[in-house]
Write a protein that binds this DNA or RNA. Structure first.
Length: 185
DNA sequence: CCCTGATTCGC
DNA sequence: GCGAATCAGG
């Protein structure tokens, strides 16, 4: 792949929007995040502040670190996304493992697509079978079995970024809330 | 461990 | 100019 005008344009746009290099690379396809970063540098648009840094205002020597921190860090974050839902361009990422009690909503005999369920049963075989303490931010926190028995563990497979579960479990955890409306039509 | 961007340097 | 490898962080 080469940097055609269109690709560069998309790169600029996404970078300006605060998208990460890897996201841009994924969008562009055929390039790695390194390639994107490299290009960004060559294009000379390192700082996403864009509007910031008027080119000559380096009077910021000495950082006494203001006693208080009144600045609220206003982050515009346009988020002009239309291709896919990406509710978090930057920041607010590393969260502590919930590990509390409100975890997965066990799917009773709901009306989850049979496929999704089959998928789950499938992956539960490969599950890492982690214990509560072994869970991390990126291990699927879907519980399997009965907590009161020995037959209990957490899926532990790689989570789908941003989500608390692996792909298969996300499938049954977040149902589009509409199995099937009126069948009579 | 996962991810981020920054830099280097052979191509 | 390009980008993999590497570095430096979170």
């Amino acid at each position: 792949m080469s940097w055609t005008d269109e690709r560069v344009e998309l790169l600029k746009k996404m970078w300006g929007e605060g998208q990460s290099a890897s996201q841009i690379a994924k969008e562009l396809g055929g390039v790695t995040r390194n390639a994107v970063i490299g290009k960004v540098h060559r294009l000379g648009l390192s700082n996403r502040g864009g509007a910031e840094e008027p080119a000559a205002a380096p009077k910021a020597e000495a950082k006494p670190k203001p006693a208080a921190k009144p600045e609220a860090a206003a982050r515009p974050e346009p988020q002009t996304e239309s291709a896919e839902p990406k509710p978090q361009p930057v920041a607010a990422r590393n969260k502590i493992i919930p590990a509390g009690q409100p975890l997965p909503p066990q799917p009773s005999a709901n009306e989850i697509s049979p496929e999704a369920l089959a998928k789950v049963n499938e992956i539960e075989k490969k599950a890492k079978k982690l214990t509560l303490m072994e869970l991390t931010e990126r291990t699927c926190k879907w519980p399997v079995g009965d907590p009161a028995t020995e037959h209990f563990w957490f899926c532990g497979l790689p989570v789908q970024q941003g989500k608390p579960y692996c792909e298969a479990h996300v499938g049954v955890a977040f149902q589009p809330m509409s199995s099937r409306r009126d069948r009579r039509r």
